[in-house]
């Protein structure tokens, strides 16, 4: 079974046309990979579908914009994957 990171990296590679080997757990989706907000919507849609969850993008964006949390927590891939795992676990109860 593919890890959360492998699944997310595959989604980003396919949707954004980024070579898979350049995507690492420490990559920042925006600053390192250059994913723009429109492509990120497609990535979020694919992640939501793949994991049967709903990424709370609005909440995350608000927290980052208000300076409550660094963007790394949600947009560095390891942080993103940790959050996905938590959402999957929460859904499973």
């Amino acid at each position: 079974m593919a890890s959360t990171f492998d699944t997310v990296a595959g989604i980003i590679s396919e949707i954004c046309g980024i070579p898979r080997e350049t995507i690492t757990p420490t990559s920042h989706a925006i600053e390192d990979l250059g994913i723009d907000s429109l492509d990120f919507l497609d990535v979020a849609f694919a992640i939501d579908k793949a994991f049967a969850i709903k990424l709370p993008l609005e909440q995350w964006t608000q927290e980052v914009n208000e300076g409550q949390v660094p963007s790394d927590r949600y947009f560095v891939l390891q942080g993103l994957c940790d959050n996905i795992d938590q959402l999957v676990m929460a859904k499973a109860g």
């Binding site: 849609f45 579908k49 709903k54 990424l55 609005e58 909440q59």
Partner: peptide
């Protein structure tokens, strides 16, 4: 198709 957070498809 999908009701996302801040977006819909």
């Amino acid at each position: 198709l999908h009701d996302g957070s801040g977006y819909a498809v």
